[in-house]
Write a protein that binds this DNA or RNA. Structure first.
Lengths: 267, 267
DNA sequence: TCCAACTGGGTACGTTGTACGCGGTATGGC
DNA sequence: GCCATACCGCGTACAACGTACCCAGTTGGA
């Protein structure tokens, strides 16, 4: 079987049986790449730079990884390993999914450069598989596998979308080299031009009325997450009710009634 | 005001008052870039290549656009202009949001290379603003602006997540140069290894039981979208009920009861 | 023992974004 | 009408990228 026949990195064996003992390892290379990317962004993690970080020659990395794209795949799986899903499923699906969503978001925010990588699925990486087992295991007793996949699409979509927005914003601030308030000041000519044109009533409403934007990012995320979890709850049979109602502790109690069709501007 | 003071491309005037008439334009450059990216991917749309496409010298583009990143922003907004939201809001929010979601997905699938661009918000591009006005206008009569933003986060998150998955898959097939079934054959050693280890019951369930994966991509998307729209409906006051129940035409009638807590494996 | 299969790594190539500067051109103020 | 000025298109140049290719040295199975 030639190199080209491996459909992805997880099918290519890391270690050969013959030849000299390798000095480095995939894990070591991946770790170095994450270190550099955390400090300076993923585009700074070039093959030369990673090699220098571990004291190797530039071309030596290609003994361990067929291409930079494959290395990025190793990195992506390595990051998924950071999401703590130990002890899941616990029996309380809502607590499990909340912990997963919070952990996933925290991981993305620790490594915001990950947004430049797509490669959603399916890559068969060990950490991705672990995540699938633990997280989908939370709803598995209550719904069919198809329903579970659908609900996961909604949950993951929400988390990813929300975090991408947070990261885009942070990136914009970093790229411009401005502080958040300085950025606002610089943008205000355009904003006022739009407001005064009268052509953008919704935009104007967002700028002048939205209170959500003044909440902490954590609160914004949690409120949106509660909404998604309520949607999931609505799709579950009644036998899947949580063991107690204490599972929402740590979140605003006003949200307990969300999803029932009320309209107060709670967010 | 120096160049560096413009916080983004939309605040920098395209046309000066003095000097020779420019031969090209931002719109022309953007159009050429989209054409190349559609044919060969965004990474093929290099400054040199775009310049050659319109018959200009490589460095001429920098008279129109400060950097490639800014050009990408122009491109992103240009693509948002492709989403047809004419006549929105129509008064039937569910029809409007369905049309928006379908149109957004179709646009992404026409230009799958935009997955490599993040830059979610806020960029003040004219087409993005138009989209905000039309789409959020659908729910604006029924909910607060904060609630609207929250529901949009959920909707956009779902659409983007679903489409990213479709695109990743297509990209994987393209990159490997294999047909879809050939890819399956090549992956089967890994899949069987995972199945036989017994460590991945959920993964096994997905592989062996999930029927969703055998549906057309259109149907998968539409079913998930109906779920999201049902969640939105649940968050609206009862006065926002649709004018007739015919709004779900074109979709599976079994979905009309979704979100009410049933568990049959409908997907 | 011997050789095939591997090792780390140096050199080199093609391609990228773009800084800089040139000679030519249109325009606003006088 | 004149001319300084501010723009035009674009050629050259540079640093940095991923990686193909090659080489001498090392190891393990036959």
């Amino acid at each position: 079987m030639t190199d080209a026949e491996y459909v992805n990195i997880w099918m290519r064996p890391e270690r050969p049986t013959r030849g000299p003992k390798p000095v480095y390892s995939r894990a070591q290379i991946t770790e170095a790449a994450v270190r550099i990317a955390d400090a300076e962004g993923l585009e700074a993690a070039t093959m030369r730079r990673i090699a220098a970080e571990i004291g190797a020659g530039a071309m030596s990395l290609y003994r361990y990884v067929p291409s930079r794209d494959d290395l990025v795949e190793l990195i992506a799986d390595r990051l998924q390993g950071e999401v703590d899903v130990e002890g899941m499923p616990s029996g309380d699906w809502r607590a499990d999914l909340t912990r997963y969503a919070d952990g996933l978001r925290a991981m993305w925010l620790r490594h915001p450069w990950i947004v430049t990588v797509q490669r959603s699925l399916p890559s068969f990486g060990p950490n991705q598989l672990r995540l699938i087992e633990r997280v989908m295991g939370a709803l598995d007793p209550h719904v069919s596998i198809d329903e579970n996949l659908g609900l996961m699409a909604m949950l993951n979509g929400y988390v990813e979308g929300a975090v991408r927005e947070e990261i885009s914003w942070a990136e914009e601030v970093r790229r411009s080299g401005l502080s958040e308030s300085e950025w606002m000041v610089r943008s205000s000519p355009r904003v006022h031009q739009l407001l005064e044109s009268g052509d953008y009533p919704i935009f104007s409403k967002i700028v002048t009325e939205a209170r959500r934007l003044h909440l902490s990012r954590d609160d914004q995320f949690r409120h949106g997450l509660q909404r998604v979890l309520d949607c999931i709850a609505a799709a579950l049979p009644s036998t899947a009710e949580p063991p107690t109602s204490a599972h929402r502790e740590g979140y605003s109690p006003t949200l307990a009634t969300r999803g029932a069709g009320f309209t107060r501007p709670a967010m």
